[in-house]
Amino acid sequence: MACRAGGALVGAMLVLISLSSVVEAQFGGFCDPFQAPTGGWTGGTATFYSGGRGGACGFGGLGYAIYGERYAAASMKIWQNGAACGMCVEIKCMGPSGCYAGKIVKVTITDFCPNTHPNLAHCGPEKNHIDMGQNSFPVIANPRVGVINIQYRVVPCNAYGNFQVQINGNQYGWLSLLIAQIPGSGRVVGCEVQGAGMNYWEGLRRVWGSNWMRTGTPLKTPIHVRLSLLGQICKVTSRNCIPNGFYFGQAVKCNLR
């Protein structure tokens, strides 16, 4: 009996290893990057502002085309040096007045609410504060109240079939990638590239917001891009993401499926 139980255990382990290999081959990580866990509700405050066509993540016009009016700026505690860029959040109003009962709005973090005057009252270092787009706030509360208490939680972003990249670089070794429209958790924690003919992945560094950069020997095109997404650290790979003859400011869609 003990031998049969041990054999069954070994068999189960082999099946698990086999399944894990399939998942890794398909998704580049031991999880499904198109899904992400929903976080618990956290208390905080919210205000609203205009100007969502820019933002500290650097999404700019590309981000506005993707996220539209559902943008938001995060306080330092939520921002975490830009790691919150692309994070999707559900928000509901908790008072003390002006709330629309049962209403929840989903926004994407595209900006930073600086912990400087006159923002210290809301966006100080220890504050859980979200400065919402001026057209998102009215979904959950009367804008006349100005400031509300909220509950917010991190939720999965859309299961996009591609991510978008704005190429800010040249053919001579400097490559800077602005990455937007991320599936799953929406948060990129690592970016790697592989030029044509390379047999290894080269890591880029986050320079600010959602911008990742490398310098050095020029990469041969087309260039593959691999992203590490926060969660269980899923890796997603887009082959031939950066095309031949790319140019500064070019926006490309990089397929994931």
Rank of each mutant, 00 (worst) to 15 (best):
K77G: 07
K77P: 06
I78R: 00
I78H: 03
W79E: 02
Q80C: 05
Q80V: 08
N81F: 15
N81S: 15
N81T: 12
N81E: 15
G82L: 10
A83S: 12
A83G: 02
G86Y: 15
C88P: 00
V89I: 09
I91L: 05
C93P: 06
C93S: 10
G95V: 04
G95F: 11
P96N: 07
P96I: 02
S97Y: 12
G98T: 01
G98N: 06
G98S: 05
G98M: 04
Y100P: 01
A101K: 04
G102L: 03
K103F: 02
V105C: 03
K106G: 07
V107F: 11
T108M: 10
T108W: 14
T110N: 08
T110A: 10
D111A: 06
D111Q: 04
D111Y: 09
C113R: 02
C113H: 07
P114T: 03
T116Y: 12
H117K: 08
P118E: 12
P118M: 04
L120S: 15
A121R: 06
G124I: 01
P125T: 08
E126N: 14
K127T: 09
N128G: 05
H129V: 01
I130A: 02
I130Y: 09
G133Y: 11
N135C: 06
N135K: 12
N135H: 13
N135A: 12
N135G: 07
S136M: 12
S136W: 14
S136Q: 13
F137E: 00
F137T: 00
I140Y: 12
A141I: 03
N142E: 11
N142K: 03
V145H: 10
V147L: 13
V147W: 14
V147Y: 11
N149W: 08
N149P: 01
Y152N: 01
R153H: 15
R153I: 06
P156K: 06
P156V: 06
P156T: 05
A159W: 10
Y160M: 02
Y160N: 04
G161D: 15
N162H: 13
N162E: 14
Q164D: 08
Q166R: 09
Q166L: 06
Q166H: 07
N168C: 02
N168G: 00
